[in-house]
Amino acid sequence: MYSEKVMDHFKNPRNMGEIENPSGVGTVGNAKCGDIMRMFLDIDENGVIQEVKFKTFGCGAAVATSSMATELVKGKTIQEALQVTNKAVMEALDGLPPVKVHCSLLAEEAIHAALWDYAEKHGIQIEGLEKPKNDISEEEEEEEY
């Protein structure tokens, strides 16, 4: 059901792991099926993303989109990273099955959440970045139980 690219990123996830003392870290959850993604960013003084790592609790598509998203933002400026949408990630993966599109939203949100954290820590504002809808694990569910 998955493309070869998705399978490749699932089998060999790029940049999986953590960064100690990251410049920014963001965790987002998916209210829909309860999956969680965490992105760690290391951003240098020029605003370039030097290092990026992820952790994901979710399906094959969630793992693959996290992995692809890290590749797409690595070495990019903050502004460039903001352009990495879930659509871009999906395209880079040669598409996802329709039921899995929501998983790719997590990756976009997680990057935004990590950038938001970076901005807050540094007391700066990033143009075009809105407060992400993150930690949905808190806003999640209740009604579903």
């Binding site: 996830p13 999986m16 792991g17 953590e18 965790t27 969680i36 993604m37 965490r38 952790k55 994901t56 609790f57 793992v63």
Partner: peptide
């Protein structure tokens, strides 16, 4: 589990 933020 190594990949899981929940486990971390």
């Amino acid at each position: 589990r190594e990949m899981s933020p929940l486990y971390e």
